[in-house]
């Protein structure tokens, strides 16, 4: 089933053409990877799907229905959850408060309506455990977790709140090799739960490990659109960077 479909989408900021003619499909239980170097338009694309910016041209379909997302709230209500690399969490707040931020369960009536803190703590622990994350203390500030752990909490959060589509903005960019592997494992876990995943990355190696579809962006335009059967890792890497950048990329791949 196609959860999100972009056809020939474009976006301008004033006179700057940030995105032109990009098409993308997200299916349930599949991972669609968006690859591109810095400035390729990945962030713009993510903002359109997340409801932060409206697209100017082309069509955006959510579960077959043509639409324009006008706020992150609207995107969330339609089942599209976005996890940002740098702004996923509020560092000083406890894990359980972060987990329910924006969708807090409450009990009681009238002026005594209050947070259901026991339920929130318990549910946070259980939801994390279901994704295979065992936290010692959900009361610790989320800023004390490692970068990888924070991403995982954010992913578990999206899964718990019934997201159908999970958009991940460079989840492995700031992480070490081991942490990246852990995060990719949870991305796969989310896919196995039946979610459609959009994985934004500039690392073809990470993308090829988990991806079913690959969309390549360069300077705001789409330069390729492949399924896993169409392309090998080498070809993907070739496609993504021109020959001159390849040495640097090969270096990166060797470490990853």
């Amino acid at each position: 089933m196609t959860l999100v479909e972009l056809t020939d989408v474009s976006k301008r900021y004033g006179t700057v053409r940030a995105l032109e003619g990009v098409s993308l499909e997200v299916h349930a239980g599949e991972i669609t990877c968006v690859l591109g170097d810095n400035g390729a338009g990945k962030s713009t694309l993510i903002k359109i799907v997340a409801g932060l910016h409206r697209h100017d041209g082309g069509t955006l379909r959510v579960e077959g229905e043509e639409t324009t997302l006008s706020s992150p709230r609207e995107a969330l209500d339609r089942g599209i959850a976005t996890v940002y690399q740098d702004l996923a969490v509020v560092p000083l707040m406890p894990v359980w408060r972060n987990f329910f931020l924006g969708s807090e369960p409450r009990k009681g009536a009238g002026p005594f309506k209050r947070l259901d803190t026991d339920f929130m703590r318990r549910t946070t622990r259980e939801a994390l455990l279901r994704m295979g994350i065992d936290l010692r203390d959900v009361d610790q500030p989320i800023g004390t977790l490692s970068g990888g752990e924070r991403q995982c909490v954010a992913i578990a959060r999206a899964v718990h709140f019934g997201a159908k589509v999970l958009v991940l903005d460079e989840p492995t960019a700031a992480l070490g090799v081991k942490q990246s592997g852990v995060v990719l494992k949870y991305v796969a876990a989310a896919r196995d739960e039946g979610l459609g995943v959009v994985l934004i990355t500039h690392n073809p190696h990470h993308a090829y490990l988990v991806g079913d579809r690959f969309v390549l962006l360069r300077r705001g335009t789409m330069v390729g659109h492949y399924t896993r059967d169409d392309i090998t890792l080498d070809e993907l890497t070739q496609q993504m960077a021109g020959g001159s950048d390849l040495d640097a990329l090969r270096h990166e791949l060797q470490r990853g």
């Binding site: 932060l52 707040m93 329910f100 807090e104 409450r106």
Partner: peptide, 28 residues
């Protein structure tokens, strides 16, 4: 104290002060 620690509004106050963009992104 009640508002800060036991209500949704309190959660939002901590969130907008702690990381405004993250708060906005999750619908606060």
């Amino acid at each position: 104290s009640w508002i800060l620690l036991r209500t949704r509004t309190g959660n939002w106050i901590f969130a907008v002060g702690g990381n405004e963009d993250a708060a906005r992104a999750v619908g606060v």
